[in-house]
């Protein structure tokens, strides 16, 4: 029996869609800042596999010579990023949504099953409870990355007043590298996320905007909400 099942609460949809442009602008203004000392590369010794960033990237994006503007944007939007992220975490804690989001004891095995299934190497799709194990791991990791960006950012921003933090992260130079690596992590997350949303299709995408998902609900389980418990261990 088909039903409209409530999937994403309104608050979470707002946090998600506010974060998307804010994080995008944080990354963009971060690139304006990074350009002024663009020394990172993948490689060893005199071998460079990839330089962050090649001249062609700057030519295409025009993000050179905007250090002051980048800092002005970055130090305004950091507040929006921080407050939105904090409200999201508090909401998930108090609403109980964290039960769907935090990895549980099945998540690692499930994440492998999901990956194999998505790669076409495993026939059976794993059972999910709003999110599958791979999603739980990814959505929890990206929140921890957000916390990491705030802390490494603070360590670079006020390295004397928060000297304990800067030193704890390995020093000023190390904190800057960590801040950059986390940013690369968001980009990789974004690529996989958008690809998966595309694969999952319209019903799933619509649920992040409209909140509901159409499901073929088994008889006797008609309440349009998802069980908040952990999945039962399979025999």
């Amino acid at each position: 029996m088909k039903k409209l099942v409530e999937k994403h609460p309104l608050a979470i949809r707002w946090f998600h869609w506010v974060n998307f442009p804010v994080l995008a602008l944080m990354i963009w203004s971060g690139l304006w800042i990074y350009w002024a000392n663009d020394i990172y590369r993948l490689g060893w010794g005199n071998t460079t596999l990839y330089k962050f960033f090649p001249q062609s990237f700057y030519d295409a994006t025009h993000l050179d010579h905007k250090l002051a503007q980048g800092m002005a944007w970055h130090f305004l939007l950091m507040w929006v990023f921080f407050i939105n992220g904090l409200l999201y975490v508090l909401y998930t804690l108090f609403s109980g949504e964290w039960r769907y989001l935090l990895p549980n004891r099945h998540s690692f095995r499930e994440a492998i099953e999901v990956t194999l299934h998505d790669l076409g190497l495993r026939q059976a799709a794993p059972l999910v409870q709003k999110y599958n194990g791979a999603q739980r791991l990814a959505y929890t990791a990206v929140i921890l990355m957000g916390l990491g960006s705030l802390l490494t950012g603070l360590a670079i921003y006020k390295p004397t007043q928060f000297g304990w933090l800067t030193q704890g992260l390995g020093g000023y130079e190390a904190a800057r590298v960590e801040h950059f690596v986390l940013t690369i992590g968001y980009v990789l997350f974004f690529i996989v996320h958008v690809a998966q949303v595309g694969r999952a299709g319209w019903n799933n995408f619509r649920s992040m905007v409209a909140g509901f998902e159409i499901e073929d609900v088994p008889a006797g389980a008609a309440s349009p909400r998802l069980a908040p418990r952990e999945p039962e261990p399979k025999a």
């Binding site: 799709a125 059972l127 999952a200 069980a227 039962e232």
Partner: peptide, 13 residues
């Protein structure tokens, strides 16, 4: 107070 939906295969697709 109907029974909530148990873990199930994603409806995607």
């Amino acid at each position: 107070p109907e029974k909530p939906i148990p873990p199930h295969v994603s409806p995607d697709g």
